[in-house]
């Protein structure tokens, strides 16, 4: 029901033990050499060259491979050879599990098929953003996964509105927010009406009525929804090679004028029109 990677899927289902998975990961770590290590193994550069390139990385925001070329330690052709060798010798987790005796080839294929079916609903669909950013794919995925979680976790029917740029976060009954850090820096927010807060609480608590629930529990359910979405966004981002850390969620009660988008940030608004006429809004405040 969540975004997973294959090893986790197998352990969670009890197909392989956590010990077997750790053995397979250790085998991967030994086999899957980093770019610099691979270039050393191929006899193209020395450990001292890698160290010099790492030192240069302190002052230059460049990938190691590009720096090795710029410093004259590798030619572009040699860099491509190293990358090709890395790809050709990469040991995937399924293959590693076979090598440590945790799975047979037939079992691997069967579980890979089951994994693909389990994760099919989290394959991203196209979403258009009104900005041009190197991280657009991440923000599109964030919106897409939010829509999927509204369906899967909250069981709400909705229509996604067009994403727009905003300078103000519109007022609403409550907002739940989570700060994202790492390779990207942004604040993720969900804004809900009083009615939608109750709908979310019913879904999260699996209760038919939440009329007698204390306000802190109702607010907590919206924060937990944000936590679930952002955790799964971080998982998907890691599959895309982007490190994303999440912080504990917070609740915000905006004034009747809303909240201004902070200086140095771009505000993206994603309206989510719920079937009964209510609207929730997902917002991203992306640090420029």
């Amino acid at each position: 029901m969540a975004v997973k990677f294959f090893g986790q899927f197998l352990v969670e289902r009890g197909v392989v033990s956590s010990e077997a998975l750790l053995n397979a990961i250790n085998l991967q770590d030994k086999n899957n050499l980093k770019l610099g290590e691979m270039a050393v193994t191929m006899g193209l550069i020395s450990q001292a060259d890698i160290q010099r390139a790492h030192n240069a990385q302190m002052s230059k925001d460049m990938k190691l491979g590009d720096l090795l070329v710029e410093l004259g330690f590798l030619t572009l052709v040699q860099l491509n050879d190293v990358i090709t060798r890395q790809k050709n010798t990469h040991l995937y987790i399924g293959e590693a599990l076979i090598q440590v005796g945790a799975l047979t080839a037939e079992e691997l294929q069967k579980h890979l098929d089951a994994f693909k079916a389990d994760q099919a609903e989290y394959v991203s669909n196209g979403i258009e953003l009104p900005i041009a950013s190197v991280n657009n794919k991440i923000w599109e995925m964030t919106a897409d996964l939010t829509y999927k979680m509204v369906t899967r976790v909250l069981d709400l029917k909705f229509r996604a509105g067009k994403c727009t740029l905003g300078s103000t976060i519109p007022p609403n009954f409550m907002l739940a927010a989570m700060d994202l850090s790492g390779d990207v820096e942004a604040r993720y927010l969900i804004s809900v009406s009083e009615g939608l807060q109750k709908s979310i609480a019913k879904a999260i608590l699996s209760e038919e009525s939440v009329d007698n629930e204390p306000i802190e529990v109702l607010e907590d359910t919206v924060m937990e929804f944000v936590n679930v979405v952002c955790g799964n966004v971080a998982a998907k981002a890691s599959q895309m090679g982007v490190i994303m850390n999440i912080n504990p969620p917070v609740s915000i009660h905006p004034s009747e004028h809303g909240l201004p988008v902070p200086d140095g940030h771009t505000g993206l608004c994603f309206p989510i029109h719920i079937e009964d006429g209510d609207t929730m809004e997902m917002m991203l405040l992306i640090k420029n």
């Binding site: 090893g7 986790q8 799964n232 998907k236």
Partner: peptide
């Protein structure tokens, strides 16, 4: 909710967790 982040999952197992359940569960 971070169960699907490979590094977090592996770190948890290395520290002795018996399993990792992803949210929503």
């Amino acid at each position: 909710s971070l169960g699907g982040v490979g590094d977090k999952f592996t770190e948890a197992l290395k520290l002795g967790a018996k399993n990792v359940i992803s949210k929503p569960f």
